[in-house]
């Protein structure tokens, strides 16, 4: 065998360094040259407001990984050839299937022999996605090799990783303590003491369950404030739409036109997705049936509600909460072509 070509998808995880190391060591000795293809798949296209910084992060990670490969391979006497590239910068990758397809087409184009996968692989989104990705890779027929790094891969983990332990426990402690004192009497010594104990227990046991994302010391309070602005807007929308739907339901002819629609929302999974999906569900006329990754399947009851949905005012509001005012300036889902009316049996 003259050359061994290895594809390593990278993402910013705690195990990325070990994965690269494994990719280098696990190569069979008889190969004369090793070609490493280090790739980063971006979930957003670069035109999105946050796409620019993601691209910069990706390039930084790639250059680090390239030096890791050279460092690890310096002890062996094979020729090393490293190619780095950023994938998916011209399209919008939604779920494991899209990633698997991207890797497959890359592998076909570059004649890749082996794909080494990071067990914590997590491209851009907050959701853990290794297991569905494995399934999708199998279905497209791409052979992969999961790097046996020290941290065991668990598929649906209850708690997040141990990073920023202190911040999370600290935040959870004060949230819990505040809640306890609101329930009880803040001037009664018994409540102050037991509250601290209870908050300690809650913080230690649940901090990593609740905060699966890294906390931002500046960003998180600002987001909370912006969320406070969002609530009155949402309430207004809810009341307005409720009156509209009440009229429809109470009318004897009941002129409903139910449709299923698919909207590709451009918010991250996790908290932003919950905010969007629950807002959509709370606004009458639209109901989130599925929310996997960014693909929302929404049942709409009346045409006006569907048009509101396609205009994406709620989506913009949620983006305002999480990304600030610049993040809110995106085209409507209809202009992006991210909306689709689907048949009922095509869930």
């Amino acid at each position: 065998m003259a050359a061994e070509r290895v594809l390593v998808p990278l993402s910013d995880t705690v195990t990325v360094r070990q994965t690269v190391g494994y990719a280098v060591q696990s190569c069979p000795g008889e190969a004369e040259t090793l070609e490493f293809h280090l790739v980063v798949a971006l979930p957003y296209d670069t035109e999105m407001p946050e796409g620019q910084s993601l691209t910069e992060d990706a390039e930084r990670l790639l250059s680090k990984a390239e030096s890791w490969v050279r460092e690890d391979a310096s002890s062996t006497n094979v020729t090393i050839d490293v190619t780095t590239s950023v994938l998916g910068d011209d399209e919008y990758l939604f779920g494991p299937r899209d990633y698997a397809r991207t890797f497959d087409s890359y592998a076909a184009a570059h004649d890749i022999d082996r794909l080494v996968l990071d067990p914590e692989y997590q491209p851009g989104t907050t959701a853990q996605m290794l297991q569905p990705l494995e399934r999708e890779l199998e279905s497209v027929g791409l052979a992969y090799d999961e790097a046996p790094v020290e941290r065991p891969a668990r598929h649906e983990r209850l708690a997040g990783d141990g990073a920023e332990r202190f911040d999370k426990i600290f935040a959870m402690f004060w949230i819990s303590y505040g809640f306890y004192l609101v329930l009880g009497d803040p001037t009664y010594w018994f409540d102050l003491v037991t509250g601290a104990a209870v908050a300690g227990i809650v913080a230690v046991s649940l901090a990593h369950v609740t905060f699966t994302f890294p906390l931002d010391r500046i960003g998180s309070p600002i987001r909370t404030l912006r969320f406070g602005l969002y609530v009155p807007y949402l309430l207004f929308e809810i009341v307005k739409a409720n009156l509209a739907i009440s009229l429809v339901i109470l009318r004897p002819s009941m002129p409903i036109r139910p449709t299923m629609t698919r909207v590709n929302a451009r918010v991250r999974s996790g908290l932003p997705l919950l905010a969007l999906a629950n807002s959509i569900t709370l606004t009458p006329g639209t109901l989130t049936v599925r929310a996997d990754d960014q693909r929302l399947i929404i049942h709409t009851l009346i045409p006006s509600a569907r048009e509101d949905l396609f205009e994406g005012s709620l989506e913009r509001a949620v983006r305002f909460v999480f990304h600030g005012r610049t993040g809110a300036r995106i085209p409507t889902p209809e202009e992006r072509g991210d909306t689709e009316i689907i048949r009922g049996d095509d869930l």
């Binding site: 739409a241 409720n242 339901i249 709370l282 606004t283 009458p284 109901l287 049942h299 009851l301």
Partner: peptide, 11 residues
């Protein structure tokens, strides 16, 4: 069921 879930959840 889907239409009923609308009023059940929102109104």
């Amino acid at each position: 069921i889907y239409a009923r879930a609308h009023t059940a959840s929102q109104t």
